[in-house]
């Protein structure tokens, strides 16, 4: 198979690349507290891009996305805790497990359209946490608690690499032949099939990417917490935050998930210090308003209303 050529890189790519490179160079000099916030932001961004693969590109709303995050975290915790693997090896395992799980779940659930897919994925993390609670090998209700050192720079560069690969892949997918196939599926799946698009395969393909990166981000998140806890690892709130970031930023766009991560993560950390749960009051209203008023998200709205930005923003 011949890979499609990479088209010319636009300003959005350069902008994101500059952001990433500046972050990577500056990281060793950033004080600890802002650095941990930056790490959290990158984890959120990685989650947002992984949600973007399935929900942004195909329009399939995956409410159960956190199931990949949780399994990635547990796979990480298991190999690091039981086999004493290096945490980075654990992240790779988490990614692989996420991708495999997406392959299996996707083969079944991607047959369901619209709401049915959303509901079928919604029950996955609920069932997963119930199963984990009674699995002693994974620590049952206790979870897996590890005593790893505090190494923010390792966390930073790991999630940085994951995010960079993810954004690169997003660019490759959206600008190539696959991107056109996905846009067709998002537009009208039946019509897409009658033009020769193997919708089932394409959807499964991006769903695997989605599972892979969600699993990896889940593993890194577990690493920063030095452990995995069943109810947190599979908290639906994560799914919902991922969805929120993609919707707010702009579904299927290149810059959208990053913008969405900033918009969701910053109030998240700010309000966290005020009162628990308050940040979701703000985020919740924000999502509802954006979905109803500008369903195309920030990037989509900017492109629509400011023609000059159409060539720049993607």
């Amino acid at each position: 198979m011949k890979l499609p050529a990479i088209p010319k890189l636009g300003p959005t790519v350069w902008g994101i690349a500059a952001f990433l490179v500046v972050g990577a160079v500056a990281a060793p000099w950033i004080p600890i507290y802002p650095l941990t916030i930056l790490i959290g932001l990158l984890v959120f961004a990685a989650l947002a891009y992984s949600m973007n693969f399935i929900t942004g590109l195909t329009g399939y709303v995956s409410f159960g996305q956190v199931v990949f995050m949780g399994t990635g975290a547990y796979a990480w915790g298991y190999v690091v805790g039981t086999f004493r693997w290096h945490p980075i090896g654990g992240v790779l395992v988490g990614a692989a497990v996420g991708a495999l799980l997406a392959l299996g779940l996707g083969a079944v659930t991607l047959r369901f359209r619209g709401v049915y897919f959303a509901i079928a994925t919604l029950v996955m993390p609920l069932a997963a946490v119930d199963i984990i609670l009674v699995t002693p090998a994974l620590g049952g209700g206790q979870g897996i608690i590890l005593n790893l050192g505090f190494e923010p720079l390792s966390w930073f560069y790991t999630i940085w690499v994951i995010l960079a690969i993810e954004i690169g892949l997003t660019y490759w997918v959206t600008h190539g032949r696959i991107g056109y196939g996905l846009r067709a599926i998002k537009g009208d799946e039946d019509a897409a099939k009658t033009l020769g698009i193997d919708a089932a395969r394409l959807k499964l393909f991006v769903f695997c990417f989605s599972g892979l990166f969600t699993g990896a981000a889940g593993a890194v998140n577990a690493w920063t917490l030095s452990g995995v806890f069943p109810n947190d690892a599979f908290a639906l709130l994560f799914s919902l935050q991922m969805l929120a970031m993609v919707v707010i930023g702009g579904m299927g766009t290149l810059l959208g998930p990053l913008l969405g991560a900033v918009v969701v993560y910053i109030p998240h950390t700010y309000f966290l210090t005020v009162v628990v749960g308050a940040e979701f009051i703000v985020i919740g209203i924000l999502i509802a308003i954006i979905a109803l008023v500008i369903p195309e998200g920030i990037v989509g709205a900017l492109r629509r209303h400011i023609p000059a930005l159409r060539r720049i923003l993607e």
Binding site: V247, G277, I287, A288, A291, L292, P295
Partner: peptide, 19 residues
Amino acid sequence: QSEMVTLVATFGLSLFIAN
């Protein structure tokens, strides 16, 4: 399309109400 919009919007509402 519109189904997805309401799906996401009511999700936002659910976050708001619960919290």
